[in-house]
Structures are given as structure tokens and as C-alpha cells.
């Protein structure tokens, strides 16, 4: 369970560039929740993700993960329990390392110091990686010795998804992870995401600009504006909502139209 209490973050405090990125965001995600997050650019979605991941520490407020206060836990320690995908498919993988080596690095999270730092990727692990890769249905299991830089954006993003979930994370954060892919590939990666999240019952937060997806995927939808969560819907109310309803809600809560041309009204 992720519990965020009144976190605030202001960038460039006291200068002309002062930007209040998060102003008192509170959010509780139950185990197994899959929440989609919508909002225009600068609404604070990515800042919220960065705060949860520990890329910076909030000015005030508390972040708890499974009852443990992680507000000031360093990023690399948190990432043992938090899986993360970025919009840019190039960001989540190391291009000059092979698929197998990338997975080995991601799999480091599994060995909490039980295995020595000088140990190597064993046969058992290679077999495990191969099985996991086969689930992606992209033929990557036969290319484990290839550098990741040779893969397409979609393949890399699928691999990143696998790396983020190879050790089941307590939360998976997806920051528009299909936005840079072509529609067919995006759908494939999205289907994979849904499958993995469902099968492993992973608690998940996903930013999307696709309004259809925002209502279609997951069981909860959050809307952000000006560093606040302005709308939070789940259950029956959500299943009855249409894209138009969502856009109207946005206009009500934010007092403005969604003016982002990247927002897609349908699939």
C-alpha cells in the first residue's frame, strides 16, 4: 500500500523561476490498485512520480510504502521495491549491454546481498530470463546475446517492462510508457502491461494522455492540475464514465479546457 500525505514541492524557491510543482498532494493506493493519471503538461504528474521514486525529496509531507516511511530513503534503495518506466524507450535500458546483461542488472534487486557481488549470471537465471522473454512474444529469447541498442523502441520498452517487473515491485509506475510507440506496438506493450499487472497483482500508477485508455485500463482514475489531484474516481462511477464526462470533469475542476494537443480523445 502506498500512502502519500500532503507532499509539497517547489522548484527554484525564492527566484523568479519559482514553480510550485506539488501542493499538498495526498493519495492512498490500496494493494492491487491500478490507477491511471491524467492532466495537462505541468500538472505535476511526473513530479509526483519522481517524488515517489525518490528522484528528489519533497519539501514537506510523508510518503509511506507498506507502512514504512520512505520519505527520505535514497532513490537506489527505493528502486528495489519500485518499478519504473519512462516515456522514452531509450531510457530504461543500457544500449551497449546485451539483453541478458540488462536483465541481470535488473535482477540484482532479487538478491538482497545473499549473492556475492562477484558472482555471475548462472545457468538457472539464464533459463529464467529466457522463459520471461518468451512471454513477451517478440522472439527476444533467441537474441539474448544481442546488444539492446539493436532493438526497436517497442521491443526496448517491452524489455524495460520485463526488467521493472522481473522482481515483482510493490508499485509499478508507468510514465506515458507507450506514448512514443507506433499505435500497433503501443497496443501490444499496453496489453503486456495489463497482463503482467493483472497476473502478478501489482499496484500500479500510469500516466496517460489517452483519455480512452485512462478509463479503460485499471480500476481508478486520477486527474491532476496545478500540482493537485483534482478528481479521483473508481468503482461504479468510473465504469459509467465516458471520455466526454472525463473532459467535462476536467473543465469543472481545473476551470479550463484541456488544452493539450497531445491528449487523445479516443483510441
Amino acid at each position: 500500500m502506498l500512502k502519500i500525505e500532503k507532499i509539497e514541492k517547489t522548484f527554484n524557491k525564492g527566484t523568479v523561476n519559482e514553480k510550485i510543482a506539488l501542493c499538498g498532494v495526498s493519495l492512498t493506493l490500496e494493494d492491487g490498485d491500478f490507477a491511471t493519471v491524467v492532466g495537462s503538461n505541468g500538472a505535476g504528474k511526473s513530479t509526483l512520480f519522481n517524488a515517489i521514486a525518490g528522484s528528489f525529496f519533497p519539501d514537506s509531507g510523508i510518503i509511506e510504502l507498506d507502512g514504512k516511511n520512505i520519505t527520505f530513503t535514497p532513490e537506489h534503495v527505493r528502486s528495489r521495491e519500485i518499478g519504473r518506466l519512462f516515456q522514452d524507450p531509450l531510457m530504461g535500458t543500457a544500449p551497449n549491454m546485451t539483453i541478458e546483461e540488462n536483465l541481470s542488472v535488473a535482477y540484482l534487486r532479487a538478491s538482497k546481498g545473499q549473492k556475492g557481488i562477484f558472482s555471475r549470471t548462472g545457468k538457472k537465471e539464464k533459463q529464467f530470463f529466457r522463459e520471461q522473454l518468451a512471454l513477451l512474444n517478440m522472439g527476444l529469447e533467441d537474441r539474448m546475446e544481442n546488444p539492446v541498442g539493436l532493438l526497436s523502441g517497442g521491443q526496448r520498452q517491452a524489455l524495460t517492462l520485463l526488467m521493472a517487473t522481473v522482481v515483482t515491485p510493490k508499485i509499478l509506475m508507468l510514465d506515458e510508457h507507450t506514448a512514443a510507440l507506433d499505435p500497433a506496438t503501443a497496443e501490444k506493450v499496453m496489453d503486456l502491461t495489463k497482463k503482467i499487472v493483472r497476473d502478478r497483482k501489482i499496484t500500479c500508477l500510469m500516466v496517460t494522455h489517452n483519455m480512452h485508455q485512462a478509463l479503460d485500463a485499471g480500476n481508478r482514475t486520477l486527474m491532476m492540475d496545478g500540482g493537485r489531484i483534482v478528481f479521483d474516481v473508481k468503482g461504479e462511477r468510473r465504469s459509467g464514465m465516458t471520455v466526454d464526462d472525463l473532459l467535462r470533469k476536467f473543465a469543472e475542476n481545473a476551470g479550463a479546457q484541456l488544452d493539450n494537443d497531445r491528449i487523445l480523445l479516443s483510441n
Binding site: A53, S55, P74, E75, H76, V77, S79, R80, G83, R84, F86, M91, G92, T93, A94, P95, N96, M97, E101, N102, S104, V105, A106, L108, R109, S111, K115, G116, I117, F118, S119, R120, T121, M163, A164
Partner: peptide
């Protein structure tokens, strides 16, 4: 050494800083 877990972590640190931050390695 570059094939060990530590070695791979070092290689990843130079190859993809974003990935390293997301995978429990302390750069």
C-alpha cells in the same frame, strides 16, 4: 570482473544513468 554482478552494475552506470537509478544500483 566486468561479467560479475558488480562489473555489470559498473557498465550499466556508464551506459544508462536513468536505468541505473531505476534498478537499485547506487551510482
Amino acid at each position: 570482473f566486468l561479467g560479475t554482478r558488480l562489473g555489470l552494475s559498473i557498465r550499466a552506470t556508464g551506459d544508462s544513468p536513468a536505468m541505473v537509478r531505476a534498478s537499485s544500483i547506487n551510482p
